[in-house]
Design a protein around this nucleic acid. Structure first.
Lengths: 366, 366
DNA sequence: CTGAAAGCGCTAACAA
DNA sequence: TTGTTAGCGCTTTCAG
């Protein structure tokens, strides 16, 4: 066994000074080598690196940040993590960050109800170089503060009222429009719609896309078929249950504003003894990983979540590098992914898979 | 519009000094108030707080860490984020952390292949006060370094060869044993088993549990029925496809070492035109959120993932507070969750749901 | 109970 | 190309 210094509580870490001493150079030079400064003699660099290696030196991040260097850390503010939605975005972010050797501090919103804004400012204060804000359910109040400080941030899947932030999102209106059109072309006219949080831009855009498609096909918009949800599976379940119990409406298809609520709807439908898509069609939005796992596989509108994360990270990194860049907005195309949860109306006997090309962004996958 | 100082790049942040000045106190006192030191006159505290409020002061984390204070940050090392598994654990961690006002820096492993160890040490150096390591696919090499530095860390769902780390995991052996017994009681004797990464302890434990159950019920262990996978959906799919194409083996049930590979297996089975559970039963392990969404709902062994995260965080926090605490190991009970993917063998006509109590940790849920 | 002062480890002018 | 020297904002003895 090794020597018994278990109880030595605080072993001082190796610092840049130690390296300087060991290599017979100044700490400034060591610092230069470590942060990749160009103009150092090759032999010097080597001397430093040797000492670093030998002493097992590792940088102290807080010290570096404090001294004005790059912490190489960005803050990632998310509402939660348990559904694939955020995870997939985070995956994309992480990939891009890794390329630039950045890491992320994870913050969950709604953690300090009311003091969110204070919380965010703290994050932005010192530790992180920029912020990535993923789809909070409510429009954040601290954006002004960030902007005022000229602190880099990018919103993901979320609109900013002031139109003054960098934003990465997907074409929600378009996606909903095309999906609705698909259902219409399948023969449906009684299409129920489950909305998301209606204070969120993506939710209202999807609703608008749905309405526009109906209108363009001369199908009257029936408010009785529109139900306000909250992007949760539970909502989808409860709302659909309600729909199925009502006698006054008979939708032949349900378009849920996100996959999660679509899953809830599927549950309710099965519980009611109905078959999907024979008795009723279901369409979702997002294309989270689960969508292709459920049975029947969910037809849905794909948001390129991972790519959204990547691009957001890339923009943020650019912004960090050059804070004078003006905010930019990137809207990625959504894509209708046709799987097995939508069928024709009226149901055709013998037909297995409805696969009517509607032109544009269609996709058939697993 | 406000005044045009957009171009002022670096507005100095409000510091503790400003607060001191504004309140006519010393920065030491301000610091004391801010870090909740007990012995300050109430009126003084109030004066400080007022100034803080008025100036909009927020702490600078790096400065605090550097000066030896608590960063209130722990590092969270995870393999990925896109499946519910890690997300659910992270959710639990976050909850516990929030209670103690801690945050987490997210690190993804396999990001710096080969230099992982260096990476981890960097994390541990300065920024974070402790580390939570979630189920890396390989046994990490840097544990010794951490221990040597007396740096607090907790392993989640992962064994440590040296038996010298704090660990939170679940009763993998037991879970697999009970699940296998359940299948046996359902009448199955030809039970295929898809393993996980066999260098990972949880994977070998599950395999051992499966074997033990067979043995205890006098069913010969057939190595031809055991397939090595990697905890991935893809594996489950490929392996199952292979199984179904072989003539020499005819399993009536497949026990996959995690839900992900079970999902893959389900895909392969459906693709083969077979029905679950009528033609073949499927059993998973983990109970990730998707498990109750797939159709048919997956019968699986639940790992209390969220709770594992919570407890790991709690242990880490304790360890941070008092580094002299000896490492502890907590193994949480797994639980067989009976849903719809397993049926009796031979199949009984007319029977809807097999629900044979096997005693112990059974559970029927959605 | 409060203030003065010495760093924590690093970067960034400014010199040399 | 390299060294010297101030701090970055905070905590923490040590005096008062």
């Amino acid at each position: 066994m090794s020597n018994e210094n278990n109880s030595s509580k605080k072993r001082r870490n190796v610092t840049i000074m130690d390296v300087a001493q060991a290599s017979g150079l100044s700490c400034a030079t060591v610092s230069r080598v470590l942060s990749g400064y160009e103009f150092v003699k090759e032999t010097t660099r080597q001397r430093v690196m040797d000492a670093v290696e030998q002493l097992g030196y590792v940088v102290n991040l807080p010290a570096r940040s404090l001294a004005g260097g790059h912490s190489q850390i960005i803050g990632l503010l998310v509402p939660n993590l348990d559904n694939g939605y955020v995870g997939t975005i985070a995956q994309g972010i992480d990939q891009e960050l890794a390329r630039a050797n950045y890491d992320s501090v994870l913050y969950t919103s709604h953690r300090h109800p009311g003091k969110e804004s204070f919380y965010v400012i703290t994050i932005a204060n010192g530790l992180t170089e920029g912020l990535l804000l993923v789809a909070p359910q409510v429009v954040p109040t601290y954006l002004d503060a960030l902007r005022e400080q000229n602190f880099p941030y990018v919103l993901i899947d979320q609109a900013d009222a002031t139109e003054n932030s960098s934003i990465v999102d997907a074409s929600n209106w378009q996606g909903a429009y095309e999906a609705t059109r698909y259902l219409i072309q399948l023969g449906h006219t009684q299409i129920a719609f489950i909305t998301g949080e209606l204070i969120v831009r993506s939710a209202t855009d999807r609703l608008a896309g749905y309405k526009a498609a109906l209108k363009d096909h001369d199908i009257p918009i029936n408010d009785d078929l529109i139900f306000e949800g909250h992007f949760q599976q539970e909502d989808g379940y409860e709302i659909t249950k309600g729909i199925l119990e009502r006698a006054d409406i008979q939708p032949t298809a349900i378009f849920a504003s996100n996959d999660l609520s679509a899953f809830g709807a599927m549950d309710a439908i099965r519980e009611h003894g109905l078959k999907i898509p024979d008795d009723i069609s279901i369409l979702g939005f997002d294309d989270v990983p689960q969508a292709s796992i459920v049975y029947p596989k969910l037809t849905t509108v794909r948001q390129p979540l991972e790519q959204m994360g990547k691009i957001a990270a890339k923009i943020l990194l650019e912004q960090i590098e050059d804070p004078s860049r003006p905010p930019q907005r990137v809207t990625l195309a959504t894509q209708l992914v046709i799987r097995d949860s939508c069928g024709p109306y009226p149901p055709q006997e013998g037909e297995t898979k409805p696969l009517k090309q509607t032109g544009g962004s269609l996709l058939r996958t697993n």
